[in-house]
Design a protein around this nucleic acid. Structure first.
Lengths: 299, 299
DNA sequence: GTTCTTTACGACCAACGTAAGCATT
DNA sequence: AATGCTTACGTTGGTCGTAAAGAAC
């Protein structure tokens, strides 16, 4: 059995037209070819489908029986093709992205909103997760891609640097450092330091930078930037947060200042599974985010 | 778009096998040809369906989307093919036959029962109707074919003589004719005659035979043979019925005798629409009935 | 005679297989 | 080096169109 869409179209055309010549024209083939197509179809289904007497063409009982199935088959074919082309045209689809809480608060939503304006029929999901979880979700396919400060295993993940995010000191307004024009990592020496959780990328980033300087460990470790802000406001110490997290720490009694050191940045990568295609919807979003690289936060 | 069953089979095989070489073997083609088939499919659906990296083959998001549709399409194809072949194998189907009440009582049921024994999954319907109605049902396609004493319009109907049915005199046991060895049409002269309804073929047949002889019209005209028997039993007159109707007139006080005249027969034809195929089930029954022609009631 | 389908036949394109190529492990 | 998908290329078979034949009215 080898039913082709072409043959089924011919079959339905002949049923509807009732004449070979008309149906042939509708299928854009010569009536000779059309006649052969019907013959082939009859041979491949193993039954005479039409009674034809030069003047009249009508379905045999077997043809009637086949008609229902043929209609269903071409309907399914058309539906499948339509579905695919609507996906391709971004009139259908779904994109899931994972990103760190800092970017998930403002930077990403702004760009996702713009994407949704362009392709309102594409479902967009955003997961705010810590770094390790982000890689897992990418690996498992739970999200199409993610934004992350770690690039993960080079064999498993494919990455593009999106931008380097500057790190900011956050302290009370009455902190000695609050009045300074320039703050450097070295200025944090011996200061009581509040960490974010170890699984997040911020901790992992800071650990390397602060170790040679020698800060005093406050013993506090929080996961939410809001909590961090509260602790700082109540005098438990100071902290360093990435640029896009500063917004989440805003309090009247706090101040945030960029660290002047060149190394006081963390990279944000776009990360996806290697050797795996993205859906059209996801690839489009990926490309748009990459484009925004140039115009977004610097150095 | 030109999806062929072959290409869809290849697609599903590759999804299941996960490797080109294995899937190719399962489809009985070289891996080269198989690779080309997948390429053609991807081109015709307008989307990359697989991510392939020499070692691993996996569906793209678009491939996943297409998979559901592809499964449905091949399932419908297989169902259609199976349906047709089951019809062809007479493991499925329906035959409707029309026949005169006389044959519908015994002769036809006997043969239909035998047919059902051979093909228990084929639905058999029998309509007992008068002659004109029989032709109408054939013409409209309400029945596949019919048994009838009239052949109908030669352009519209195709007929085969099934047999010639002898006509029987039915009278009371104390009727003068009841004791006779041989009864002839001429013996019915001036006898009170009970007719069957004019739309039936019996009336149409008898009218021609009785006119030259001159019977006395009883004024009675019945449609059921049971009624006819009752009237004769109560002395309203005599009648002539076809051989296979005699059974329906049986009463202790009645006698039935074949008419000796050669012309005292009526033909029974098998009638079908001309230029129209019968379903496999109907054609098979048609052939079987024709075969039984030789062994059934004679000239 | 006219109209419409089918058959005949030559041309062409598409699909297959063999074998070489290329990438990944 | 070995495995496995892809590309190259020659061959074959299937499909199409032109033209003639055949059937129905």
């Amino acid at each position: 059995m080898n039913l082709s869409g072409r043959l089924l179209d011919a079959f339905l055309a002949l049923v509807e037209a009732g004449r070979f010549s008309v149906a042939a024209e509708r299928c854009h083939v010569s009536s000779s070819a059309f006649s052969q197509m019907i013959s082939r179809l009859e041979e491949s289904v193993g039954a005479k489908l039409f009674d034809r007497n030069t003047r009249n063409v009508s379905l045999t009982p077997e043809g009637e029986a086949f008609l229902v199935g043929a209609r269903r088959i071409v309907a399914e074919m058309e539906a499948s093709m339509r579905h695919l082309s609507e996906r391709a045209a971004l009139r259908l689809g779904r994109v899931s992205v994972a990103g760190p809480p800092s970017l998930a608060a403002d930077w990403l939503p702004a760009r996702l909103a713009e994407y949704r304006r362009c392709f309102p029929d594409v479902l967009v999901r955003l997961h705010d997760v810590v770094s390790n979880q982000c890689l897992e979700m990418i690996s498992s396919g739970e999200v199409d891609f993610g934004l992350n400060a770690q690039r993960g295993n080079a064999l498993e993940y494919e990455t593009e640097l999106l931008f380097n995010e500057r790190m900011f000191l956050v302290c009370r307004h009455d902190d000695p450092l609050a009045g300074r024009k320039r703050v450097r990592l070295a200025d944090l020496k011996k200061r009581s330091f509040i960490h974010t959780v170890r699984s997040g990328s911020v901790w992992q980033q800071l650990a390397g930078m602060l170790a040679p300087i020698g800060v005093a460990d406050s013993g506090l470790e929080v996961s939410q930037f809001g909590t961090l802000a509260g602790l700082i406001a109540h005098g438990f110490g100071i902290s360093v947060v990435p640029e896009y997290s500063v917004q989440l720490c805003k309090r009247p009694e706090l101040r945030a200042m960029p660290l002047a050191d060149a190394q006081a940045t963390r990279p944000i990568y776009m990360v996806r599974r290697s050797r795996r295609s993205l859906s059209v919807a996801a690839q489009t979003l990926w490309d748009r985010l990459l484009e925004s690289r140039a115009v977004s936060a610097g150095a």
